[in-house]
Computed example of a mutant assay.
Amino acid sequence: MRAINVMATAVVLARPDLTVRDAAKMLVDYHISGMPVVDTEGKLVGMITEGDLLHRTEIGTELKRRTRWLEFVASTRELASEYVKEHSRLVGDVMTTNVVTATEDTPLAEIAELMERHGIKRVPVLKDGNVTGMVSRADLVRALASVGPDVRGSITPDDSAIRDAILAALSGNRWALLPQNVVVSKGIVHLWGAITSEEERQAICVTARNVPGVKEVESHLEYPSIPLY
């Protein structure tokens, strides 16, 4: 499988001139831990994540004053960078600019290796410098759970065509699934995501079953969990 087979295409984007407070609110409202930052032409210029907002003077989480020895050995560049991260009000100043990316054709094995090597949770997918999707650890786990025990290679063209047909059939319906929640392996369709009724589950499954080439539909659809306080 490749990035295009599992990536989320509805990606929340930020701008460099967005305030840090508004970026934090977007992360909370969309239930995400990071988002790409793009310029006025839509080109990727960075990533803003929870980690970038960890040490902030507004909430008293800035780094405590270093010991005199550590302060002495730290470069002025490091000290200035820390200050900006803790005090600047703009996303462009606090975002991570050295972003690890993939293309739509990048194999999932390479993406998993990038995540492990760089200690990151998500990889933006680019085409001509523009963000077309995002692959997260959850997307890789979902793909793993959708393949049979004998599957070792990449997805077949027939599976890609089946997936495209299912997404086209679902399109326009308020109960349609997000693209990353439809995975096809050897003609078997795996449906993931949250539903609000059994009628929704039935409609989604019927839509998938009616697509030519589908051998079987396995529903992993479930009701959204209710947080406990």
Results as ranks from 00 to 15, higher is better:
37 V>F: 08
38 V>F: 05
43 K>A: 06
43 K>V: 00
45 V>P: 08
46 G>F: 03
48 I>Y: 04
48 I>A: 04
48 I>W: 04
49 T>I: 01
49 T>P: 00
58 E>P: 00
65 R>W: 02
65 R>G: 02
66 R>H: 11
66 R>F: 11
68 R>G: 00
73 V>T: 13
75 S>C: 07
81 S>V: 08
84 V>I: 15
85 K>D: 11
89 R>D: 15
90 L>C: 08
91 V>S: 07
92 G>F: 08
93 D>P: 09
95 M>A: 02
96 T>P: 01
97 T>N: 07
100 V>W: 05
102 A>V: 02
103 T>G: 07
103 T>D: 04
107 P>G: 07
109 A>G: 11
109 A>Y: 06
111 I>P: 07
111 I>Y: 07
112 A>K: 04
114 L>F: 12
116 E>W: 05
120 I>K: 04
121 K>Q: 07
126 L>T: 01
126 L>R: 02
127 K>Y: 06
127 K>Q: 12
127 K>I: 00
132 T>L: 13
135 V>Q: 08
136 S>K: 10
136 S>P: 12
136 S>F: 08
146 S>V: 02
146 S>K: 07
149 P>V: 05
150 D>W: 12
154 S>G: 14
159 D>F: 02
159 D>R: 02
159 D>N: 09
160 S>I: 14
161 A>F: 01
163 R>N: 08
164 D>L: 13
164 D>F: 06
165 A>Q: 14
166 I>G: 09
169 A>D: 13
171 S>R: 15
174 R>D: 15
175 W>M: 09
175 W>F: 13
177 L>T: 06
